[in-house]
Amino acid sequence: MESLAAFFDMGGYGVYIWPGYVLTAVVLVGMLVASIRFLRSNEARLQALQAENGEPSGEA
């Protein structure tokens, strides 16, 4: 337990280190999720259009 506390304390610099790591994770995961959603919504739009037109709904 004590070593875990020391790990998070980082010699007193934890208050600067951890916000840096956490915000990096939040921004990068957020960007990834937004990109996947952007792709999925466009795929859905294309499939809907192709279905209406009676075209085969293949990739690209």
Partner: peptide, 27 residues
Amino acid sequence: AYYLWVLLLRLRGEIIANKVRVLRLRR
């Protein structure tokens, strides 16, 4: 690797979005 991953995802999305635009115009 993360940049290339997101780049591929977004590029696929943009290409499909272009296709959707063309199909809508054609219709």
